[in-house]
Amino acid sequence: MRYLFLFVALTVANAAVASEGMVILQKRCVSCHEISGPAAQSVQELWQRKGPDLFYAGSKYNAEWLKKWLVKPRRIRPAGHHPIQHIQPGKKRDMVDTTTLRPHPALSPSDAEEVTEALMKLKASAEMMGTAVFKGGSISASFGEMVFDKFNGCMACHEIEPGYGGLSGPEVYTAAKRYQADYLVSFITDPQAWNPKTPMPNKHVSAANIQKIVQYLQALAKENWDEKK
């Protein structure tokens, strides 16, 4: 009897240490998302990860976006997390087999709040972040598109509006809504520092043009895409 009491007391103490958001993450998210790292070290290991890594979520996402998206998730990667698992050869090009793409689990608003709080505590290492930061400023959408598409070829893999652009990477017209500006600068500067096996190449964009690209992504994110879809 005494031991049972001790056991219960210990369990309660334990739960107090792990936040409510962390408990939800452990129960409902870790089967698909890595929350303690490190990133996949081989291509095979990468393909086994069912969702994007979240172990540096606090350095990556905008908390406001997270809270909303977790309640009402919508697709970000038009061909899924690993396109090679969702495509088949078609007449003119490889096509996405959309029947293999599953909707993302949704949370209640209060759970989303707790989970966001827990995720925002997971910070990236200094090696991942690097030293580059976003310096602010703005750019016209048409000049931004030249830098993104013509000069650097980024549109090959990314949609810059629904239905226009490449399909293997995440849509970028909402990227600045989802991600912190410093993260965007850092990831474009050195994608392999975040994920050594990412299918995104380092295109060695000049530091000045990376600032312009992030300004462009911010301009894109201002449009109301949900309404336009």
């Binding site: 291509v43 061909a79 090009r93 652009g165 096996k197």
Partner: peptide, 21 residues
């Protein structure tokens, strides 16, 4: 598969997922 398929295609024939635009 990880890096080249996106553009060069699953069979390597140049007709990958990304080529439309």
């Amino acid at each position: 598969k990880n890096y080249c398929w996106q553009c060069h295609g699953m069979t390597g024939d140049g007709m990958g997922l990304n080529v439309q635009d």
